[in-house]
């Protein structure tokens, strides 16, 4: 079953509604084995909800429909025991705030051993040895001495390393990292991105990296999905999206970020604000903020279609493709999108 399908996770027409308000409008997405996929978008665009829904982690009031397949096995509406086999074992997830994901009253060694017991049935000395190996792997120095410390005795960056160690305990095929570096200082953020890359090279696991930081995404991912108001609006390789964003929203995101080099010009913001999911505009949700919008954009929502260059795009009036590659190279070279 799994061997015939190269895709590890396949989401089809995934929809989520809270109390009748639809927040996810049909997500189609695949994650191949060993691949690193980035999900970017601003708060409320549904990038976290997509993966919480896929793993059955949303509260009961959320209505989830569509298809969620992991190795060909349907998870949507599956039994709790089936879900639990996947969660932590096949797919692990880490979150933005590591200190609130760790149990403050348990020693960190015990928390990692617990994960090893549940997912791999390891006990006693074997579990301890494996936990120490994981701590070493995520770069906690002097692990044997710190095995019995509590979470508050670690810094924010180290807590995130502990979370990653715990996520690795089940030897997952996919790690979903939801804004894992947002709460961390700049120099520590660089360390964690470096660690994620190293771990992926070492274990061959796939990575879904959810972030609003386009710079960070470009450094750990191969493919990127840009989300807006509960839909994927553009998807492509990092090189494609960063050299030639075609969706006006993707383009707007790049333009809005200040640069670390070049002239200190005024920023180019996207006018207006993200729409309230209760009152989505008719047609394309981005059309009221879009500089390229025409009348037709306000009546029908453009479907996400494959383009000639392999990217997917949901837009009737995309940013014209740049014909000379010189412009694109210059933009990358100058770090225009940083």
């Amino acid at each position: 079953m799994g061997t015939t399908n190269p895709d590890l996770v396949e989401l089809r027409d995934l929809k989520v509604a809270f109390d009748g308000v639809q927040v996810l409008h049909g997500i189609d997405l695949t994650v191949a084995r060993g691949e690193a996929l980035g999900l970017v978008g601003e708060s409320g665009c549904g990038k976290s909800v997509t993966w919480l829904a896929a793993l059955g982690l949303l509260p009961g009031k959320a209505a989830v429909t569509g298809s969620i397949r992991v190795d060909g096995r349907q998870l949507c509406g599956a039994e709790r025991s089936d879900l639990e086999e996947v969660r932590g074992g096949r797919i692990a997830m880490i979150f933005q705030d590591p200190s609130s994901s760790l149990n403050p009253v348990l020693r960190i060694g015990r928390q990692i051993v617990e994960a090893l017991q549940i997912h791999r049935g390891l006990r006693g000395q074997a579990a301890r040895t494996e936990a120490l190996r994981l701590l070493d792997m995520v770069g906690i120095p002097d692990a044997p001495r710190r095995f019995d410390l509590y979470p508050h005795e670690f810094s924010g960056g180290q807590c995130q390393r502990l979370m990653i160690a715990m996520a690795l305990a089940g030897e997952p095929d996919l790690l979903v990292a939801d804004e894992p570096t947002t709460a961390l200082d700049a120099t520590i953020q660089a360390q964690i991105l470096d660690l994620l890359n190293a771990l992926r090279a070492e274990t061959g696991m796939a990575l879904v990296f959810i972030s609003h930081d386009l710079g960070a995404v470009s450094q750990v991912c191969e493919r990127v999905c840009v989300m807006y108001a509960g839909r994927i609006v553009e998807e492509g390789s990092v090189a494609q999206l960063f050299s030639q964003p075609r969706h006006p929203y993707t383009r707007g995101l790049f333009d809005a970020i200040p640069r670390i080099d070049g002239p200190r010009d005024r920023l180019i913001p996207i006018p207006g604000t993200v729409p309230n999911p209760k009152h989505l505009p008719a047609g394309c949700s981005f059309s009221p903020r879009c500089p390229y919008a025409v009348d037709a954009c306000g009546s029908t929502y453009p479907s996400l279609e494959f383009q000639g260059d392999g990217r997917r795009l949901a837009c009737m009036r995309p940013v014209p493709a740049v014909t000379t590659s010189g412009e694109a190279k210059r933009r990358i070279h100058e770090g225009l999108m940083a």
Binding site: A186, A190, A216, V220, I260, I332, A338
Partner: peptide, 16 residues
């Protein structure tokens, strides 16, 4: 150097 710049690989960065 820690500011992630798209198109600039991680390897060249100075990681403390």
């Amino acid at each position: 150097s820690s500011v992630p710049v798209p198109g600039k690989p991680l390897e060249g960065r100075m990681i403390l």
